[in-house]
């Protein structure tokens, strides 16, 4: 019988952040339309390296398997992308897998991307709707606005745009293009726009829009084809307008309305 066609997967492994880095090679049986997650499952079924040594299954995150949850982001041949939509047929062999480098490592290919959620909160990327009483329906969104907003709303918080950005690193606190894009999305939403000022204020703070230096890498790796440089520049424009306006009016810090909120003890 003819031997099965196989290919090699090289994986950078680390049992824990403080543990030693080891590269392991696996020989995977080729089938048409394989994706990287399937390869990792093959290894989990039979965790034996190419040299024949027993090892542990690879740790990785994945959930939806259809490029919609963002969990499976990793470096595949050095390029940040989703493992579930990376097809073996289209990849140069041997295939090299590494964890994202801009997020704290948990184990093997698994990283902790919760910083993005923290930054979404810090930049106020939500629409506050709950009050102590019903405040009625919000304004409607025109079909035109929906068309512009929808592509931005496709973000799956995978972190690829942060991974590839030269300005996201230990020397800055830059929140990255994904978060800037959400600020733009929520500022254009008719209800979200009621809090646009607070988002722009946050965007001028540490790690805000000023850290983007226009390397335009983010837009090239976004699996959802979000026009990220357009979002960066649009937020640049909104923040600048806001900043110049405030400066001309000597208004800094809390406005009267913020004072009122504070007096009433309301946490925004």
């Amino acid at each position: 019988m003819m031997a099965d066609k196989t290919f090699i997967l090289r994986i950078k492994r680390q049992a824990a952040p403080q543990e030693r880095v080891v590269w392991e090679e696996f020989e995977i049986r080729y089938r048409p339309h394989l994706n990287i997650i399937t390869c990792l499952r093959d290894i989990a079924e039979k965790p034996i390296t190419r040299a024949g040594d027993g090892t542990t299954p690879i740790s990785y995150d994945a959930n939806c398997l259809e490029e919609i949850c963002g969990a499976c982001a990793m470096l595949i041949n050095g390029y940040p992308r989703q493992a579930c939509s990376a097809l073996v047929d289209n990849l140069e062999k041997p295939i090299r897998l590494e964890p994202l480098t801009k997020f704290p490592l948990i184990r093997d290919l698994q990283v902790d991307r919760s910083i993005m959620f923290e930054n979404l909160k810090r930049m106020k990327c939500w629409v506050p709707i709950d009050g102590t009483y019903a405040i009625g329906p919000g304004p409607r969104m025109s079909p035109e606005q929906q068309q512009i907003g929808y592509p931005m709303a496709r973000c799956i918080t995978c972190g690829n745009c942060l991974e590839i950005c030269p300005k996201v690193n230990d020397h800055t606190q830059f929140v990255g293009a994904a978060i800037i894009n959400q600020v733009r999305l929520f500022n254009m939403h008719p209800t979200g726009n009621m809090h646009a000022r607070e988002r722009l204020e946050a965007m001028m703070g540490p790690g805000g829009i000023q850290d983007c230096d226009n390397a335009m890498n983010c837009v090239k790796v976004c699996p959802k084809s979000i026009p990220l440089t357009e979002s960066n520049n649009e937020i640049n424009r909104q923040v600048l307008k806001h900043a110049v306006w405030d400066w001309l009016n000597f208004s800094e810090g809390p406005t009267e309305r913020d004072e009122e909120w504070k007096r009433l003890g309301i946490q925004k």
Partner: peptide, 17 residues
């Protein structure tokens, strides 16, 4: 690594300048 500092700073002003 992206940080989550929330203290306002003046880097926006200096970067723009």
């Amino acid at each position: 690594m992206p940080g989550t500092a929330s203290k306002p700073d003046s880097s926006y002003f200096w970067d723009k300048l």
